[in-house]
Amino acid sequence: MTTAQVGEERPPAGRRDAEASKAAIVRATRHLLARHAHADITLKAVAERAGVSPPLILKYFGNKDALFTSVMDFEADVDALLDAPLEELGRHMVRSVLAGQAERGADPILRIVFAPLHGEQGEILRANFRTQVSERLAARLPGADAGLRAELAVSAVVGLGVMYGIARGPQVRAADIDDVVERYAPAVQAQLNG
């Protein structure tokens, strides 16, 4: 008997396809949210970009508002951003944002930059960002001014991400990522250390 016959722990093909479809829908929605106002994005546009049908989006997410609410959550993204010991966190955060831009053409944390485009949904995005990113980082930092230092550290990496991925600064984009990390991470780490 093979491991597949014994009961290998892989999800059924339909489940893998469903997970891939959901991931494609989320990626497509994030892409569109970074370029258009919430009110201007249709389920049809999301479906076309994701390579699925609009009814499939409704099946997985219920409605447009539920889809956008799920996309405006930063929990999973901040797990990756903050996944390092405190003494190495500045380097990790800088590398994470740059690698996301260089390898995937996007960094999920940078969605906050587009909050002004989204009206009421932008307020949800801002509130989620504050609690799920800035406040979560602050909880890891020592000192009475941890909240301020967390916001300054996050500001630094978001600003770098904007220069790299949105403004497309030619010097930053041409530089080796390791070089940028060496130059930039100490400023971020200084805020984290206090």
Rank of each mutant, 00 (worst) to 15 (best):
L56V: 08
R35H: 15
S53Q: 06
A80P: 12
E135M: 04
F114C: 12
V71R: 05
A190G: 01
R35E: 15
K64E: 01
A175N: 04
V94E: 03
G161M: 03
V157W: 09
H31E: 14
L98K: 10
R140G: 15
G14W: 12
R173C: 12
R183P: 12
P55L: 00
R16S: 14
R183S: 14
Y60R: 12
D145A: 09
A150L: 06
A106H: 12
T29M: 05
Q132A: 05
E87Q: 07
M163P: 04
E8Q: 14
R130H: 00
Q171Y: 07
L141A: 10
H38D: 15
V6R: 11
H31R: 04
G90A: 07
P54L: 07
D17A: 15
P54R: 13
P186N: 11
H36Q: 14
L137Q: 07
G119L: 01
E9L: 13
V133E: 02
Y164H: 11
T42M: 10
R126T: 08
P54M: 10
V180Y: 00
V94A: 01
A139C: 02
R10K: 15
V157C: 01
A138F: 12
T69F: 00
R95P: 07
L160C: 07
V46R: 02
G90Y: 06
Q171E: 09
E182Q: 13
A106N: 05
S96F: 10
M163Y: 12
P12Y: 01
L86Q: 05
S21P: 04
R126G: 13
D179S: 09
K44T: 15
I25T: 06
